[in-house]
Amino acid sequence: MAKRIEVSGLNAYYGKTRAIEDISMTIEPRSVTAFIGPSGCGKSTFLRTLNRMHEVIPGARVEGKVLLDELDLYGSSVDPVAVRRVIGMVFQRPNPFPTMSIYENVVAGLKLNGVRRKAQLDEIVEKSLRGANLWNEVKDRLGRPGAGLSGGQQQRLCIARAIAVEPQVLLMDEPCSALDPISTLAIEDLIANLKDQYTIVIVTHNMQQAARVSDRTAFFNLAGPGKPGRMVEIDDTNKIFTKPSEKATEDYITGRFG
């Protein structure tokens, strides 16, 4: 199910402003890749280019290639909606659909894809909630509003909703930034379990979190004041945090800037 992502020469723009420049990297399947770096250096923008969410913003555009295995995601015949079905996204703040029950939140994407048979939906709901390590907490109240859960539970509900449609890649944009330490630990444990099935990419400002959950880490920084963000280096997480190749990476990790 999990697939490799190959990015080459990627630039992203907001109107005439270039937000990130010339990014190339390989993201391996069944692994966790973390993006770290100071605010405003393009980490989240780059993340959104991987499932064509960037172009939803008026005036935004992308140059370069993003390959999912052999498929060019920005090819002229590729449907952006189809891309977002196979590359799921979990956002910074939990965003369950407020008028929907826990059950309805999980099946929302399935119904959009035409799945209607209740027995099939029931099976997927349980499987997805178990996959998000939430089933035992909510199995007796599936008809209650998803927005009534705690923050950490809501974020796991959003992860269940994302994996219900069986994506091949899961993107997470600072998924723990609004959560308490206990909920954060639950999400980190979940990420460790999910990487057996998915390619996972996570943006985080918490360097300890990157060190705990990721196999590879990419450090992003601004090319200079008023200039676009760029990727400084990417390597095995242990190497990035103990012996990075670039001085800028070492300076950021040791707290000299950022």
Results as ranks from 00 to 15, higher is better:
residue 119 A to K: 14
residue 119 A to M: 10
residue 119 A to W: 10
residue 120 Q to F: 05
residue 120 Q to W: 10
residue 122 D to R: 08
residue 122 D to M: 09
residue 123 E to N: 12
residue 123 E to P: 13
residue 123 E to M: 12
residue 124 I to T: 13
residue 124 I to M: 11
residue 124 I to D: 03
residue 126 E to R: 14
residue 126 E to M: 11
residue 126 E to C: 11
residue 126 E to K: 15
residue 126 E to T: 09
residue 127 K to H: 13
residue 127 K to P: 06
residue 128 S to Y: 02
residue 128 S to N: 06
residue 128 S to H: 03
residue 128 S to F: 02
residue 130 R to K: 13
residue 131 G to I: 08
residue 131 G to Y: 10
residue 132 A to R: 03
residue 132 A to D: 00
residue 133 N to I: 00
residue 133 N to T: 07
residue 134 L to I: 00
residue 136 N to D: 15
residue 137 E to K: 14
residue 138 V to G: 04
residue 138 V to T: 06
residue 138 V to W: 01
residue 140 D to F: 04
residue 142 L to H: 07
residue 142 L to S: 01
residue 143 G to M: 09
residue 143 G to S: 14
residue 146 G to Y: 04
residue 146 G to M: 08
residue 150 S to M: 11
residue 151 G to S: 08
residue 153 Q to T: 04
residue 155 Q to S: 02
residue 155 Q to F: 00
residue 157 L to A: 01
residue 157 L to T: 04
residue 158 C to M: 01
residue 160 A to Q: 07
residue 160 A to E: 04
residue 160 A to T: 07
residue 161 R to P: 08
residue 161 R to A: 07
residue 161 R to W: 05
residue 162 A to L: 10
residue 162 A to N: 05
residue 162 A to Q: 06
residue 164 A to V: 07
residue 165 V to K: 00
residue 165 V to F: 06
residue 166 E to M: 11
residue 166 E to Q: 14
residue 166 E to C: 08
residue 168 Q to R: 15
residue 169 V to C: 12
residue 170 L to M: 10
residue 171 L to K: 03
residue 173 D to K: 04
residue 173 D to H: 06
residue 174 E to P: 00
